[in-house]
Design a protein around this nucleic acid. Structure first.
Lengths: 260, 260
DNA sequence: GGGTGAGTTGCGTCCACGGCAACGCATTCT
DNA sequence: AGAATGCGTTGCCGTGGACGCAACTCACCC
């Protein structure tokens, strides 16, 4: 359970601020907590906990339910978080991680988002290999024939899927063209947390993609590694995919995803 | 006079926590700020500001750009804010419906509630994920100049209206500044079940909003669609408004409205 | 009515916090 | 190049502010 994990203190900073923030984290975990319980969790006296909570309340970071009731997180946090997202953008946050991923795998890394009924490529980091693919940035690519597209689709519910999917033209011999088949694949993507596409968009082009999520858990973008099929075979994929999902998760964390 | 204007302090709480939170607010306002500037704004010594900032950094509430660079708000806030909205059931229930509405209309969707004498924005879903408009979440916005505000006002009776409405400053040339005019508009809002605001808060910004009701029929929140005026013209509105009112009604149903 | 357990508050002690000054490191000026 | 400025960062005390104690006020339940 949550309690045995002390880990609270010793941050080497200002003690009271440390404690105050720990209180916020406790409230985030438990929802509604009383002063006494907070004090217990911090290992401080009731009165200390009370004063810290009061200070937080004065700034709107926590609110009290009722007159002498428990405490919970307040809307002041929304204001601060709003200011955070103002400067946060996916490309910005993802870039350093993408570069690392590109270096690790040696292949090209892309970031894409859903735009209407296609995938819009926002960023690209070229791999180290001599053979460079063309630059996808700014292009709209079919959703059903790419790993990025499948990941983005996997974040939609059934109704939205129908709005977005119109036709499934065959771009190569291996393109998925049947809706039922695609739906099955999307279920697998949701299950395993990544998607792949081998020779489905272009002959000889293989890619794998994993979801980037925001604080609410919505899939807001997709991160992919792609390269020529002859380089990205079965066994190469077994090392690339974990690196990819790890990187996507890291970006998601930077965007606030991380409720357990 | 010599020292800072501020006035944000002396909350009668724990001093260092007060200061730490003030730092967060400063960062929220200015975006990126250095230690020295923070110290100046708080009226404390550089080292004090530094230690406070460091403590915040250890918890992920602020981050440093570069190795010895300035500081900005961190992603830890997003996680806390996520936990905040998780307990607000309006946001929780509205979210999937908002997402659908945002997809249908292609414009930004907001959820707002009445907070004191302004509208507090609780959630926002961007229309097209590529380019993010201004993020209103957590902000307090004038009631008389927004569609959300008009909807929230339309749920009040005459007495409460007077308590809440103080002044009606003109924010653009089209802002409603006369009480009599506003009252007439509110009657129309009650009548037709939605409100609009064209260039009333900001030049070039158009919005429409509809009420979210609880089981008792009270207006507890407001749902809005907003975008640039050139995209949300007369004819676009004729399709958007029904989608909007439909969505708001659906959220209301989820909250128990309409089960006799 | 008395008992329990919540949140709240005054008070005195003591230590954590804040101010000082020096340092490392960039960048700019001459 | 060297000097000079100005930033973020750190060790060192002294003291003011935070903390623990204990008493208080409410609610709720035997």
């Amino acid at each position: 359970m949550s309690n045995s994990d002390v880990a609270a203190d010793q941050s080497g900073g200002v003690q009271s601020v440390d404690r105050a923030i720990t209180i916020l984290e406790v409230l985030a975990r438990h929802g509604e907590v009383g002063v006494t319980e907070v004090a217990l969790e911090l290992g401080v006296h009731k009165s200390t906990a009370f004063r810290l909570v009061s200070t937080l309340e004065n700034h709107g970071l926590v609110e009290q339910s009722g007159d002498r009731g428990k405490y919970r997180l307040g809307v002041g946090l929304l204001r601060l978080a709003g200011a955070t997202t103002a400067r946060l953008d996916v490309v910005q946050e993802a870039r350093p991680i993408c570069k690392r991923l590109a270096a690790e795998t040696g292949e090209t890394v892309n970031v894409a988002v859903l735009s209407g009924s296609s995938a819009l490529y926002l960023d690209q980091i070229a791999g180290s290999s001599a053979l460079q693919p063309h630059n996808w940035v700014g292009q709209h690519i079919p959703l059903h024939a790419t790993s990025n597209g499948k990941v983005l689709l996997s974040g939609l519910d059934e109704d939205d899927l129908d709005d977005v999917l119109h036709e499934l033209p065959a771009l190569t011999g291996l393109t998925v063209t049947k809706r039922s088949r695609l739906r099955k694949e999307l279920a697998v993507v949701r299950e395993q947390g990544y998607a792949t596409a081998v020779d489905e968009l272009e002959e000889g082009l293989t890619a794998a993609a994993a979801p980037i999520r925001n604080a609410h858990g919505d899939v807001i973008a997709s991160l992919s590694v792609s390269g020529p099929t002859f380089r990205l075979g079965e066994e190469k994929m077994t090392t690339v995919v974990p690196q990819l999902t790890e990187a996507a998760l890291e970006v998601s964390h930077r965007l606030g995803w991380g409720h357990r």
